[in-house]
């Protein structure tokens, strides 16, 4: 019983973190068609912000991280990505790869490579169904999922979300409606980047913070986003759940090395069986693009 509760809690906490990563990456991928391979490095930036500003109380520090994430997102979008979209997803992928090197080496130059750590604001454990579990982990998972829910709500239930989705579907139409598409594009990327930085900030008290720390988060976020139906935000979140569940269950019941091998093999099989993405309902942002010539 204890084992089951611990497993459930572990899946839940990891899901919270991965969902926040996936929603940011999914936003950037679904809306801009950019595979953000610097997502892990943005997480790293968030963790370093929390480390560098250790004298500021925790909550204001989180806000600062959000702010820095937004600014960083705007800068990257404006300096690097703008004008690259038309050249297809590989051009932006390679550009973001360059950005990831710059962020990593920048952090290395500033902070060095000795693992740093961030003190958690809450040290207590909590008893849940007879299992003692770190309270901070649970809280950040809940916070992360709340943010994910908010992003979904804004995207699907508000005028702002409509504008964002409209811009993606038809930039000319959106500009006719009086929405500057550039602003929406930049804003979307900035929010996606900010979510990654925030995820890193929230997670920082659990990590050994080094410039390399981001590398571990790229693959799960990537798999989460691409396992879900392409371009679908709920799909990405569902993908995050699948990855968190598989990874935790495999690592709990198999030994660590075998778990990794089985995880990657399972992901290949999953994609082979359902190349169009696993999704529990048919929410789609963009219809699957038919070749233009076939359109009736």
């Amino acid at each position: 019983m204890d084992a089951v509760v611990t497993l459930a809690l572990s899946v839940f906490t990891l899901f919270g973190f991965y969902a926040l990563l996936a929603v940011g990456m999914g936003l950037i991928f679904g809306q801009l068609g950019v595979v953000n391979v610097a997502h892990g490095e943005l997480v790293m930036v968030g963790a370093f912000v929390m480390f560098a500003l250790a004298d500021v109380p925790f909550l204001p520090r989180l806000l600062l991280a959000v702010l820095i994430g937004l600014v960083l997102g705007v800068v990257i979008e404006r300096l690097v990505l703008s004008n690259l979209y038309e050249r297809g997803f590989l051009a932006t992928l390679l550009a973001m790869w360059g950005v990831s090197i710059v962020l990593r080496e920048g952090a290395n130059a500033i902070f060095g490579s000795t693992p740093a750590s961030v003190r958690a604001p809450i040290q207590e454990n909590i008893e849940i169904l007879g299992v003692s579990y770190p309270l901070y982990r649970l809280i950040i998972a809940v916070v992360a999922l709340a943010i994910v829910a908010a992003v979904l709500l804004v995207t699907y239930r508000t005028k702002l979300g409509l504008v964002v989705r409209a811009t993606v579907d038809n930039r000319d139409m959106a500009s006719v409606l009086g929405i500057p598409p550039r602003l929406v594009v930049t804003g979307t990327f900035a929010v996606g980047a900010m979510l990654a930085v925030l995820a890193g900030a929230l997670q920082s008290p659990l990590l050994g913070v080094t410039p390399m720390v981001g590398a571990a988060f790229l693959a799960p976020a990537f798999f989460a986003v691409l396992l879900g139906r392409a371009g679908s935000l709920p799909g990405a979140i569902f993908g995050a759940f699948v990855v968190a569940l598989l990874s935790t269950v495999l690592r709990t019941y198999l030994n660590e090395t075998l778990a990794q091998v089985v995880l990657f093999a399972l992901l290949i099989v999953l994609v082979a069986v359902r190349p169009n993405g696993i999704d529990w309902r048919k929410v789609q942002w963009k219809p699957r693009t038919q070749p233009a010539q076939v359109a009736a």
Binding site: L206, V213, A216, T248, R251, T257
Partner: peptide
């Protein structure tokens, strides 16, 4: 006896195993 890949950030499954 466990060997986790380099770059492991989430140690919860290993900690659960230690506790078990």
């Amino acid at each position: 006896e466990e060997y986790s890949p380099m770059g492991t950030a989430d140690w919860q499954p290993v900690i659960s195993k230690i506790k078990a």
